[in-house]
Nucleic acid binder design. Structure first.
Length: 652
DNA sequence: TTAATTGTAAACACTC
DNA sequence: TGAGTGTTTACAATTA
């Protein structure tokens, strides 16, 4: 997977005459956190990113242009882009003019949130995609395309390809399953080989442009066989300033010039052809262009591959809609609970963003890792239940931890943060597939694994398996995290080793677990710094990150999410105490430990450990309050999860 | 500054 | 003998 920097920063400038978002200026090494209102990025932006960004902006311009053109086909004067009011897409319209780097956004949002946001963004793009295509076909039918329009169309097609690649990258990450939709069927119908050919002809064969004519000749579009490019003058493609690629890639002279300088192309990276399933080595752009025209010409195979790509998009679309709906429901739900009982933490100061940024420890609720303070970071108090807290797990950082596995330190607390059960339940697939470190401590994970088991007891190996099964992250660096698991099992008194018939198993002593000092968790720079270390986000491509950035901006600047009414619910959110609820299910009537041990387990010796720190604080209140509850019988897993989602105050 | 928490590494002992 | 398991210690980083 191509690893690209997540440093793209987009600033929407609706006032631009052509509707193209302006590319923010690049700072020279700001470390990626000062993506402030001045539009500076973190300096990690690469030429590829720039090109990427440019393409997205070009797409926007092209889309707006074509939209306007489609709505005003009968008015020739409407072709003037500069006269058209800029129709800022939803995602862009919701963006703040402020700058935010993907890193900052990632720090604010959790991986699930990011995923949802990405999907939202994808939904938006996919929504635009067929429209663009339809419009393109419509406009192509006009047969009277000026050079400007041609350029826009070429950019449009180029961006469509970019989107496809972007989505394919996501699909390759396993973030989304594959399913079809009616929308894509429409696309498929529109993208039959003949249509494709006609489209390419229309797009590239405009007589008004001499270069386009040359390109049309070079493409030899009249030949539909796979060897159609055999007659293609190889030198032509490299020299043509404007070439329309058979796969839908069209390059404006400006774009080509840029590519020649940067060696960038949506289908070219790291000296390889990025055409799906190709990976042919190309030394330079010229060679790549030749390769593209030779190997990926408009033929049955390419068309089939294009269709496959459509399937990918199609499947993503479904997943996207699903996740978007879920996200919407979550947001609606969270926003609709302004009058929940007051949690124990100090209230969030939601009045002003300035106060929010005043200081990390002041601005963020306990237990929530928060992003590094940036004066211009549009931090939103939106903290969506379980998902938010895990935001740091996606932080990307160039610094790799010495030991390969970044510390989970100060991650989502098992006490005052997200209910791990609900987090895992909601984002099970995400953690399974994404190489993202779960924002939970080893102890909480181990505990969850044990409690999740039918007998609430697991052998060490079963715990290992649970980790690897549930988290892609733990499928590597096994020595490190396994050692950590063993260390935690031995270290924490809450984990009780029981000699079972079949060997030693580990159980959870909920009372001891509750005795642990409630950590006042906040996001730490170290977390941000060390969390990544080649983690999942490193595998996210620039498109993904750019989409995330854009999407998050949309969300972050969504007015309802920052209203003061959100404060109570937000405060409530981070107190979801899975431990407390677990206490309900675990504590015996005498208040002693009873991690649902079977009778036979009781007959075996139990090694009592001494917790490193014997701090019994106010958390014991929950134990005492719940001591009268008899829970000698294990609850079903679902029920446990449900209980774990209960906020603390509901039990007090 | 100190204590607590957490993660990581490593050494060591024990068992199979 | 080696791998797995379990314990313990040490250290670093961070926050309250």
């Amino acid at each position: 997977m191509m690893v690209e920097s997540a440093s793209e920063t987009i600033r929407t400038t609706p006032s631009n005459q052509n509707g193209v978002s302006s590319l923010s200026s690049q700072s020279d090494g700001g470390g990626g956190r000062e993506g402030g209102s001045n539009g500076d990025t973190n300096g990690e932006i690469s030429p590829v990113d720039l090109l990427h960004l440019q393409q997205q902006q070009a797409l926007q311009a092209a889309r707006q242009f074509l939209l306007q053109q489609a709505s005003g086909l009968n008015s020739p004067g409407s072709n003037e882009v500069k006269q058209s009011p800029v129709q800022v897409p939803v995602s862009m319209a919701m963006m703040s003019p402020q700058m935010i780097t993907p890193q900052q956004m990632q720090q604010i949002l959790s991986p699930p949130q990011l995923q949802a946001l990405l999907q939202q963004q994808q939904a938006l793009m996919l929504q635009q995609f067929p429209n663009c295509f339809t419009l393109c076909l419509l406009s192509c039918g006009l047969q009277q395309l000026g050079s400007k329009q041609l350029a826009f169309q070429q950019q449009l097609i180029q961006m469509q390809q970019l989107q496809q690649q972007h989505i394919l990258n996501l699909q390759r990450q396993g973030l989304v399953p594959l399913q079809p939709t009616a929308a894509m069927q429409t696309l498929q119908q529109a993208m039959c080989p003949s249509d494709l050919q006609q489209l390419w002809k229309d797009v590239s064969g405009v007589p008004s442009s001499e270069e386009a004519l040359k390109q049309a000749e070079g493409l030899d579009l009249s030949t539909n066989s796979s060897n159609s490019t055999s007659a293609f003058p190889k030198a032509a493609s490299a020299h043509l300033p404007l070439h329309s690629l058979p796969n839908g890639q069209s390059h404006t002279p400006k774009r080509d010039s840029h590519e020649e300088h940067t060696g960038s192309h949506p289908l070219y990276g790291h000296g390889e052809c990025k055409w799906p399933g190709c990976e042919a080595l190309c030394e330079d752009m010229g060679q790549f262009i030749k390769h593209l025209n030779n190997e990926h010409a408009l033929d049955d195979r390419s068309t089939a591959q294009c269709r496959v790509q459509m399937q990918v998009v199609q499947q993503l679309e479904i997943q996207l809609a699903k996740e978007s709906e879920r996200l919407q429901a979550m947001m609606t739900h969270l926003h609709m609970r302004p009058s929940e009982p007051k949690p124990f933490n100090q209230p969030l100061n939601l009045a002003s963003s300035g106060s929010l940024l005043k200081r990390d420890s002041e601005a963020y609720p306990e237990g929530l890792p928060h992003p590094p303070t940036s004066a211009a970071t549009p931090i939103t108090p939106l903290r969506q239940g379980p998902s938010v807290i895990s935001s740091s797990s996606l932080h990307t950082h160039s610094h790799s931890h010495t030991h390969g596995v970044g510390p989970i330190r100060r991650r989502n607390s098992d006490k005052y943060c997200t209910p791990i059960a609900s987090e895992l339940a909601q984002n099970c697939e995400f953690y399974k597939n994404a190489d993202v470190r779960p924002p939970f401590t080893y102890a909480s994970l181990i505990r969850h694994a044990i409690l999740e088991s039918p007998d609430r007891q697991l052998t060490l190996n079963e715990i290992y398996n649970w980790f690897t099964r549930k988290f892609a992250y733990f499928r590597r660096n096994t020595a490190t995290w396994k050692n950590a698991v063993r260390h935690n099992l031995s270290l924490h008194k809450c984990f009780v080793r029981v000699e079972n018939v079949k060997g030693a198993v580990w159980t959870v002593d909920e009372v001891e677990y509750q005795k642990r000092r409630p950590p006042k968790m906040t996001g730490s720079p170290t977390l941000v710094k060390n969390m990544i270390s080649g983690l999942g986000f490193g595998s996210l491509n620039a498109s993904y990150q750019a989409a995330l950035a854009e999407s998050s901006l949309s969300l972050l600047n969504s007015p309802p999410l920052v209203t003061p009414q959100s404060a109570p619910s937000l405060n409530m959110l981070h107190v979801g105490h899975d431990d407390v609820s677990s206490t309900v299910e675990q504590v015996n009537s005498n208040g002693s430990c009873s991690p649902t041990l079977s009778p036979q387990q009781y007959s075996h010796p139990v090694h009592v450990k001494e917790e490193p720190t014997e701090v019994v604080e106010e958390d014991s209140r929950s134990v005492s309050l719940l001591a009268g509850v008899t829970h000698s019988l294990p609850l079903p897993s679902d029920e446990r999860d449900l209980e774990e989602d209960l906020p603390t105050e509901e039990l007090e």
